[in-house]
Write a protein that binds this DNA or RNA. Structure first.
Lengths: 208, 208
DNA sequence: TGGTCTCTCCACCTTTTGGCTGATACAGCC
DNA sequence: GGCTGTATCAGCCAAAAGGTGGAGAGACCA
């Protein structure tokens, strides 16, 4: 049994400490380094050459998780990256996988899930938390729920708090058209009101 | 030197594990129990009689942190509660303090801050992270913009996308009262519509 | 005791939003 | 040449939200 070296990247000391404690209970897993930012992660990845990198997406100021993943994939492509974050935003999932993440875990994951993900990652297996997987699955099954470019544009403005009239003016279309787009957006997001659409968009789609 | 008994309440195993590891390094602090939900927290507080409770506000389904604080204050008022959460939302801070929290820490707090908060709490000292303190300070300078606890509660539900009717049902008040609160909230947030209020609240206040 | 704050509620009115049906135009595709 | 998807617009109606003004009850405080 080979020991799997792991690098932890998270700006929260408590989370790093927790992961270290949990992973420390496993004989075949060893934490070889820690980083509190994307910049530190790049350095640490070079220095410690871990087999697996467990990384948060949100890391305060500076480089964000997605950017860090992209750079890590370029520089040390042999290292498997597992995203370990709090929210299962559709946009983040897609972007992280696109950037080259091997797995996607939520922070409420059970210890066993985390161990399995780390072990799977070195074997090239992609492991994700159930809610994350179901989101991806749902997107594949219901392609009709994907917003068109125009709808996405409108939704983005909607989250600024604009009225239908303002939306029309901004997009050079009539209020009637705005309403049509909105009706389609509501249907795709599975909501009934503009308020719920905004809440859903900002939270789920990561529009900020 | 007396040992300070601490109860950890957080739905994330990793966070509990991290806190336990960090607090375990301090000779005068002992973690006597853990809970993953508000319901469990009430039980554990009775059973272990901790001096200090470190609690997250967001805890998945069921009772939220604010509600748990209120119930804990009623049942075991001698126990000091410190909020330990990710976001420094104005509304959450106000509501938590109002519910009886002794301290308010952010999850990116340094270990030393956490230790100091725990030790301070048993002496009746209120400790909060710098960003939290500065928010409160700023609010003191602009008192006319402070949301009342009830308004904050309503705003929090508003960001879930609820209608006026639903808000009334949830808070056991009439729609008329909901509208009154909303008008006050809009004025304080400097917005004209519910959509803008939601957008402002989620972004500026960190409500999720 | 009087003032202030908070929470609660009401009535009336206007504006905005949402649900429904239907329509035209254009582009890409088989 | 049809089919599909996207984007545009209209009208009608019901529901929801917002604006205005007023008011009572309870808490707190000077």
């Amino acid at each position: 049994m080979t020991t799997i070296s792991v690098l932890l990247v998270d700006d929260h000391t408590v989370v790093r400490s927790g992961l270290k404690a949990l992973l420390g209970t496993q004989a075949d897993i060893a934490v070889v380094g820690e980083a509190a930012s994307g910049e530190e992660a790049l350095e640490a990845a070079q220095e410690h050459q871990p087999a697996v990198i467990l990384m948060d997406l949100a890391m305060g100021a500076g480089m964000d998780g997605i950017e860090a993943i992209q750079k890590l994939r370029q520089r040390t492509p042999q290292q498997a990256i597992i995203v370990f974050t709090t929210y299962d935003s559709d946009a983040d999932i897609v972007r992280a996988v696109d950037a080259g993440a091997m797995g996607y875990l939520l922070k409420d994951a059970a210890p066993g899930e985390i161990f399995a993900a780390v072990r799977g990652a070195v074997q090239g297996k992609s492991v994700m938390s159930a809610p994350v997987a179901s989101r991806l699955f749902q997107q594949l099954r219901n392609p009709e729920e994907i917003l068109t470019p125009r709808e996405a544009e409108l939704l983005s403005l909607l989250t600024q708090g604009l009225s239908n009239r303002d939306l029309g003016k901004r997009l050079f279309i009539s209020e009637a058209t705005v309403k049509t787009h909105l009706a389609h957006i509501y249907a795709k997001l599975g909501v009934e009101t503009r308020a719920a659409a905004i809440a859903t968009a900002i939270r789920r789609e990561g529009m900020r």
